[in-house]
Design a protein around this nucleic acid. Structure first.
Lengths: 240, 240
DNA sequence: ACGCGGCATTGACACAGGTCAAGACCATCA
DNA sequence: TGATGGTCTTGACCTGTGTCAATGCCGCGT
């Protein structure tokens, strides 16, 4: 049931991207897959997690919850993203499968050994972590300063960009974006309530910025228009 | 004018923490200091930065600005924190000295060589980056879900914790916290306006949670009370 | 001693987004 | 075919925080 690393869909974007030959064989030998259904819990904050993993397909969310129940999603893991912190077995977040999810897992110990012995992998992980940090900081701007409408537009832009990055094609007009999250999960991610998410999506639709196909798919007639609604610098940062 | 690494105040917390003997000599030989006055710009978003650095003393802020001028601080660099991204010379953020600032700098090239050749340093940097990521994610919760009052309290708690961590003593009652930021900088960091910051500080004072000594120093009669106001889990996460 | 400029505080008011509540839509299952 | 439960939408109202404006505080230079 396992795909050989050489044929893996995330081969060139995941932690293993820079591996070759022997290293890849080694990973191939120790990896194992895990599947989760939408809604299932992958790990709980404060509990041990015996593995680290790459997301092969599907979407996972990292979230934090306050004592009174308020919750904020603090990370969205899409295919090729890395889950878990080497050197710290206790999860700092609740990890949930937001859609059906396939993980490519490595037990901690062998993976940490590999990290220590192989600068290719540790370098790649450092780079991915720095990217995560940049993404988190972009999210700080979104949560701290953007209006609800801008938040929704930004979120759609990010989904489109990520989708495009994985398929190596720039996001253009007329693309369809699949929303892998419920309105509630979007609200958790965007620091809003689900009602506000719903209202703003309706407003963007009313204004012709997006069209809805069913409830979970949006099509974007004019990508630049959407990008403009997001409030970000139009020049759009670094190409990835 | 340079302190030898062996006597450096941030010796055991900075990127260089895990270095010894020859490595330390090598760093000692290539490092150089830079000083900035409060308010000075260290780097601008989109411009090249020729060095990476550790903060020796003082406070620096990373911030992002939207086209219409809204700004959000996305990182606060305190003594021992690392500034700059190895492998990417163009700064993604505006970097400002929030107080008088002393940086211990390394030119990019030699530092990147060292990173490649020395797993001690690259491992330490990975660990620090993962800590930064965790800190950023805590900040996401703060920006997305906390009330203005909780934001202020959380900020004070963090300053107290960081101060304590550097001096290896847990934050107790009766401590004084020096605010190294103007109300405006605090507002930028907390996703508020300076007026709201001012009002909430006044409210915390009125309620006896804090006392003000001048405008820039707060004393905390009951640390647990303050921590409770922050809305965080009381058990307070991992000890550092 | 005085006036100036930067910071901070406080008040009055407006408004974006939260809260509460009612219903619509739609797939599933008896 | 209708009942059920999950998801989403929409409306009416409320509240926390932003906005705008006035004033206070304090260190500094002359």
């Amino acid at each position: 049931m396992q795909v050989p690393c050489a044929d893996c869909p995330i081969r060139y974007r995941a932690v293993c991207a820079t591996c070759e030959g022997g290293d890849l064989d080694r990973l191939d030998a120790t990896k194992y897959y895990r599947r989760y259904q939408a809604g299932q819990t992958v790990a709980l904050s404060g509990e041990r997690m015996e593995f680290v993993a790459s997301v092969v397909s599907g979407v996972a969310g990292l979230s934090q919850t306050m004592e009174d129940g308020r919750t904020q999603m603090v990370g969205l893991l899409l295919p090729s993203d890395f889950l878990g912190r080497p050197g710290r077995a206790v999860s700092a977040y609740d990890v949930t499968a937001l859609s059906d999810l396939l993980l490519c897992c490595f037990r901690r110990k062998p993976f940490e050994d590999l990290l220590r012995s192989n600068p290719r992998i540790s370098g790649r992980l450092l780079d991915m972590t720095l990217d995560d940090l940049d993404a988190a900081r972009e999210w700080l701007l979104l949560l701290g300063r953007k209006s609800a409408r801008e938040k929704i537009a930004s979120f759609l832009v990010i989904l489109a960009r990520r989708h495009a990055a994985l398929h190596q094609a720039p996001p253009g007009d007329g693309i369809d974006i699949e929303l892998p999250l419920t309105r509630e999960a979007m609200a958790d991610y965007l620091g809003l309530t689900l009602e506000t998410v719903s209202r703003q999506i309706s407003a963007l639709k009313r204004d012709g910025v997006i069209h809805l196909v069913g409830k979970r798919q949006v099509s974007v007639p004019d990508f630049n228009r959407l990008a403009a609604e997001s409030g970000d610098d139009s020049d759009g940062g670094l190409p990835i």
